[in-house]
Design a binder for these strands. Structure first.
Lengths: 266, 266
DNA sequence: CAGTTAACACCTAGGTGCCAAAGT
DNA sequence: ACTTTGGCACCTAGGTGTTAACTG
């Protein structure tokens, strides 16, 4: 028990000394400063390509939440761990929806789209990622359906946060669980949000459903999609950039055990 | 810290002395003996009323899992706690499905049906429940949809356990969450399992859906229903029968902290 | 040698009955 | 007098990066 405490403290100390002197300090309060510096570098407005014409989707909008945190990671080159059992993203995708029509049913989901068809390598000396060989063929299914959907537009509009925190990334070919998205390691991905109305010809068949039953999923061509470039990431099985490791530890509650503040209580 | 330890142990001790001498011993190994005694008392075969005629449901069957445990509770008069935030059932409903057609989509759900329209009272002296005044008007929605569904029959058939352990019982009028079922306290309920095929006229509209999207819910008149009488229960906000409390502590992993064995490590 | 895996200590999140207090 | 509520200690379940061992 007490020996475990000591070893953790020793590890945390050695990590911070390995990283050496950077512009990051060890406490979380420094992160806002960094974010301010980086905002001009990485932000691009989300693209809204409404490729269908139904009126139920024209005014839809989505705002990325916790954008400052995403920008901090993006400036370093966001890495996401993938494991056989599936690993949550951190940060997780959280959005605020608006402009959906009150009485239309929608499903909301995320797709992980490939950015290029290349494998990537991390160069330790320059702290940079470089394209390597050709990429693996993308998996067929990389969707994660929001578990609350389908719901009426008024439901989605009034949610202050629509979170995809249960989503898991995996490197197993055929994920057994519904919450897992299969990806290739050392590849670059761009999460994309989809808001999709339920087609008219099936909505009437739902008319005798009670409120709790208004749940189904649909694949149609009329959907609004939103891309937030600052959420792009590279998949890894172990972190490459130690500054990424450091920022994850500083900001993910589940990694609190690895924070330096555990060494020095004040 | 250490004082907390002591108070818990003292409480566990006082509880067991309050219960006094019963046919139950304190360790879990005694439960099998009880189950054997009670099986002849409480078991009734499940009723299978297939009120629709589609061939996709005629051969459907459902077996209740952990039946011995249910019977132990049933013999004492099963009580389920309901809270404002929602409380899981223990035992939870777990079934094994078979006989579904491989390539037909089904949803599976549980409904909590009222057994009578009476309020009930527990008589401490006789350890029995008696009908009291008139019952409250039942809530409209008492369904819990299995989160895996809809899935093809071959999916359901090959599951060794279809569990409803995420289901929560609540006494709040309008549950905010999807996993909550609103019930009245001191009322008697009978869980009923439904297996429901997706109607033909909507299945074809699903044809261009990818595998991960075959999820939707439907209300139709053609469903098979299964009732397991040994899962009947009375809702309470605090346990009435101390033997029920005792059996819950002995068999629910989350209540391990209240077991007597915590006093006497061997 | 670069990439992956599994066991591990340390956390968060939340499911238990208990109990004193409040509600009706 | 009976029923409900909220805070509590204790537990399970599972999300973290670390580390050493393993893989090709």
């Amino acid at each position: 028990m007490s020996s475990g405490d000591l070893s953790v403290r020793a590890r945390a100390f050695s990590v911070s000394s390995l990283i050496g002197s950077t512009h990051h300090s060890d406490d979380e309060s420094s992160r806002n400063t960094d974010a301010t510096k980086l905002q001009s570098f990485a932000y691009c407005p989300p693209t809204n390509k409404t490729d269908g014409e139904p009126t139920s989707i024209q005014n839809a909008a989505a705002d990325l939440l916790c954008r400052e945190l995403w920008l901090e990671f993006h400036a370093l080159g966001t890495e996401m761990i993938i494991t056989k059992a599936g690993r949550r993203m951190f940060p997780s995708l959280k959005v605020r929806l608006s402009g959906l029509e009150d009485d239309v049913l929608y499903i909301v989901y995320v797709d992980m789209e490939t950015v290029d068809d290349k494998r990537h390598r991390y160069i330790y000396q320059s702290s940079k990622w470089v394209p390597g060989g050709p990429g693996d063929v993308p998996h067929q299914e990389r969707h994660f359906l929001h578990p609350d959907g389908p719901q009426l537009g008024k439901f989605w509009n009034k949610q202050s946060c629509v979170a995809f925190d249960k989503l898991k990334l995996t490197n197993s070919r055929k994920p057994s669980q519904r919450d897992q998205i299969p990806l290739h390691s050392m590849h670059r991905y761009q999460p994309t949000l989809y808001i999709q109305p339920i087609p008219n010809d099936c909505r009437e068949a739902l008319s005798n459903c009670s409120e709790w039953w208004k749940t189904f999923c649909w694949k149609s061509s009329s959907a609004a999609s939103f891309t937030f470039p600052e959420t792009q990431f590279i998949t890894v099985t172990a972190y490459q950039n130690q500054q990424i490791t450091r920022l994850k530890i500083a900001s993910n509650p589940f990694a609190k055990g690895f924070r330096d503040s555990n060494r020095e209580p004040r």
